[in-house]
Computed example of a mutant assay.
Amino acid sequence: MYGLYRIVLFTIFDILKGLASPFFIFIFFIIYFQYYKKTEVPLKATIISILYGIVGGMIVTVALIYLKIYIIPLEYIYILITSLLLSIIDSRFICFSYGGSLLSLMSLVFHYPKINITELMIVISLLHAVEGVLILINGSSQKMFNIFNIKGQIKDGYEFNRFWPIPFVVFIGDTMIKPFLLFAILSYGDFTIGRFPRKKTLETSLMLLLYSSILFTITMISPYKFIAPIFSLLAHELIIFINIYRERSNLNSLKSIIKGVNVTGINSKGIGKELGLKTGDIIVRINHYHVKNSKDFIELSQKSFNKVKIEYFNHKKGLVKKKYRGKKNSLGIKIS
Score class of each variant (00 low, 15 high):
Met121Cys: 05
Arg6Thr: 13
Leu234Arg: 05
Ile115Arg: 07
Gly194Gln: 03
Thr217Asn: 05
Ile89Thr: 10
Ser330Lys: 14
Phe297Trp: 04
Leu43Glu: 03
Asp296Phe: 02
Leu254Tyr: 11
Ser97Asp: 11
Tyr70Trp: 11
Leu67Ile: 02
Glu131Gly: 00
Thr39Ile: 11
Ile54Arg: 08
Tyr98Gly: 04
Asn329Gln: 11
Ile310Asn: 07
Phe216Val: 06
Leu64Ser: 08
Leu319Pro: 03
Tyr112Leu: 12
Glu299Gln: 15
Ser49Pro: 09
Asp190Trp: 03
His128Arg: 00
Leu254Phe: 03
Met207Tyr: 14
Phe163Glu: 01
Glu159Asn: 13
Leu64Tyr: 05
Gly270Pro: 00
Ile30Asn: 08
Ile72Gln: 15
Ser249Asn: 14
Arg195Met: 04
Ile266Asn: 02
Ser222Glu: 02
Asn243Trp: 10
Val263Gln: 04
Tyr324Pro: 01
Lys143Thr: 07
Gly276Gln: 07
Val130Cys: 03
Thr219Ser: 04
Thr219Met: 04
Ile115Asp: 07
Ile286Met: 10
Pro167Ala: 11
Asn287His: 05
Gly18Thr: 01
Val55Pro: 00
Ile124Asp: 01
Pro197Gly: 02
Thr175Val: 09
Ser140Ala: 15
Lys316Asp: 15
Ala129Thr: 07
Ser83Thr: 12
Phe26Met: 14
Ser104Arg: 08
Val170Gln: 06
Leu275Met: 02
Ile239Trp: 07
Leu16Trp: 14
Arg246Asn: 14
Ile88Asp: 06
Tyr312Asn: 01
Thr217Met: 13
Arg6Pro: 02
Tyr76Glu: 04
Ser330Val: 06
Leu251Cys: 01
Ile154Gly: 05
Ile335His: 05
Gly56Gln: 02
Pro229Asn: 04
Val308Met: 09
Pro42Thr: 10
Leu186Ile: 08
Ile25Gln: 10
Ile117Trp: 08
Leu51Glu: 09
His236Cys: 12
Val55Ile: 15
Ile282Ala: 05
Tyr35Ser: 05
Gly194Glu: 05
Leu277Trp: 00
Ser304His: 11
Ile258Trp: 04
His290Asn: 10
Lys269Gln: 14
Asp156His: 09
Val320Cys: 06
Thr175Gly: 04
Ile71Asn: 00
Ser49Leu: 04
Gln142Glu: 15
Ala235Phe: 13
Tyr32Phe: 15
Lys328Asn: 10
Ser336Glu: 12
Asp190Ser: 11
Val263Leu: 05
Tyr66His: 08
Val41Gly: 12
Tyr32Val: 07
Ala20Gly: 12
Ile266Asp: 07
Ser294Met: 09
Leu16Pro: 02
Tyr289Ala: 13
Ala184His: 09
Thr61Ile: 06
Thr264His: 01
Ile50Val: 15
Lys37His: 13
Ala45Tyr: 07
Asn149Ile: 11
Pro73Trp: 00
Ile94Asn: 00
Thr264Arg: 10
Phe93Ala: 08
Lys303Thr: 10
Phe241Arg: 14
Gly56Phe: 02
Glu131His: 07
Phe13Gly: 03
Lys114Leu: 13
Val291Lys: 04
Lys323Cys: 09
Phe241Val: 13
Ser304Phe: 10
Tyr289Ser: 10
Leu126Gln: 06
Lys225Leu: 15
